[in-house]
Amino acid sequence: MAVVLVGGCGAVAERRDAATAATERFERALASRQYAEVCRALADVTRQEVEQSTAGPCEQGMRQERVPAGGRVVHVDVYGRQARAVLTEDTLFLSLFPDGWRVMAAGCTPQPDQPYQCEIKGG
């Protein structure tokens, strides 16, 4: 029984580490204005939403969006295939896809007694 618990914890830690790495890659690309890389880090539905809301390619849309540089990762919570990454200046929501973690929403701020308000998010 202890082996199963240790193995289960390891899987959560591995998912958390991978979600943290995806968050850090997204933040580095955002901070250095590498918008093609930012767009590659987004989930397809989020990238499509950026393109629709800005009426142009994702890279151009990300130049227009007001997603703040998030700073350093404070902690990452993983719940199955979903994750919330809390940074010093932002919160990101990620989902795990077959090719890895992708950003579903960014530029998110908590609202009292309501869901987070996010600058970009998938529909």
Rank of each mutant, 00 (worst) to 15 (best):
Met1Cys: 13
Met1Asp: 14
Ala2Thr: 09
Ala2Trp: 04
Val4Gly: 13
Leu5Tyr: 06
Gly8Phe: 10
Gly8Tyr: 11
Cys9Gly: 11
Gly10Thr: 15
Ala11Ile: 11
Ala13Ile: 11
Glu14Met: 09
Glu14Leu: 10
Glu14Pro: 01
Arg15Glu: 03
Arg15Val: 02
Asp17Thr: 10
Ala18Asn: 12
Ala18Val: 07
Ala18Lys: 07
Ala18Thr: 10
Ala19Phe: 06
Ala21Ser: 10
Thr23Asp: 05
Thr23Arg: 01
Thr23Ile: 08
Glu24Leu: 05
Phe26Asn: 02
Phe26Gly: 02
Glu27Asn: 11
Glu27Thr: 07
Glu27Pro: 05
Glu27Gln: 12
Arg28Met: 04
Leu30Gly: 02
Ala31Cys: 03
Ala31Met: 02
Ala31Val: 04
Ala31Thr: 04
Ser32Trp: 00
Arg33Glu: 14
Arg33Ile: 05
Gln34Met: 07
Tyr35Ile: 07
Ala36Tyr: 04
Val38Asp: 03
Val38Trp: 02
Val38Ala: 04
Cys39Gly: 03
Cys39Val: 07
Arg40Trp: 04
Ala41Leu: 04
Ala41Ser: 15
Leu42Ser: 07
Val45Asp: 10
Thr46Gly: 09
Thr46Arg: 03
Val50Lys: 00
Val50Gln: 03
Glu51Ala: 15
Gln52Ser: 14
Gln52Asp: 13
Ser53Met: 11
Ser53Arg: 13
Thr54Glu: 14
Thr54Pro: 03
Ala55Val: 15
Gly56Phe: 03
Gly56Leu: 03
Gly56Cys: 06
Pro57Ile: 14
Pro57Asn: 13
Cys58Ile: 07
Cys58Ala: 13
Cys58Asn: 14
Glu59Thr: 09
Glu59Arg: 07
Gln60Lys: 08
Gln60Cys: 05
Gln60Thr: 10
Met62Trp: 12
Gln64Ser: 12
Gln64Pro: 05
Glu65Gln: 15
Arg66Phe: 08
Arg66Gly: 15
Arg66Pro: 09
Arg66Met: 12
Val67Cys: 02
Pro68His: 02
Pro68Ser: 06
Pro68Phe: 00
Ala69Met: 03
Gly70Cys: 08
Gly71Ala: 04
Arg72Ser: 05
Arg72Phe: 01
Val73Leu: 01
Val74Glu: 03
His75Ser: 09
His75Thr: 05
Val76Ile: 05
Val76Gln: 02
Val76Ala: 00
Asp77Ile: 01
Asp77Cys: 00
Asp77Leu: 00
Val78Glu: 02
Val78Tyr: 01
Val78Met: 04
Gly80Glu: 08
Arg81Asp: 07
Gln82Asp: 08
Gln82Asn: 08
Ala83Asp: 05
Arg84Ser: 02
Val86Cys: 00
Val86Pro: 00
Leu87His: 01
Leu87Ala: 02
Leu87Tyr: 01
Thr88Arg: 03
Glu89Arg: 01
Glu89Gln: 02
Asp90Tyr: 00
Asp90Arg: 00
Thr91His: 00
Thr91Leu: 01
Leu92Val: 08
Phe93Ser: 13
Leu94Thr: 05
Leu96Tyr: 04
Leu96Asp: 06
Phe97Thr: 15
Pro98Gly: 07
Pro98Tyr: 07
Gly100Cys: 07
Gly100Met: 08
Gly100Arg: 08
Ala105Asp: 11
Ala105Ser: 15
Ala105Trp: 05
Ala105Lys: 10
Ala106Tyr: 10
Gln111Leu: 14
Pro112Leu: 14
Asp113Asn: 15
Gln114Trp: 13
Pro115Trp: 13
Pro115Arg: 15
Tyr116Ala: 14
Gln117Leu: 12
Cys118Met: 10
Cys118Tyr: 08
Cys118Asn: 11
Glu119Thr: 14
Glu119Tyr: 06
Lys121Ala: 15
Gly123Lys: 11
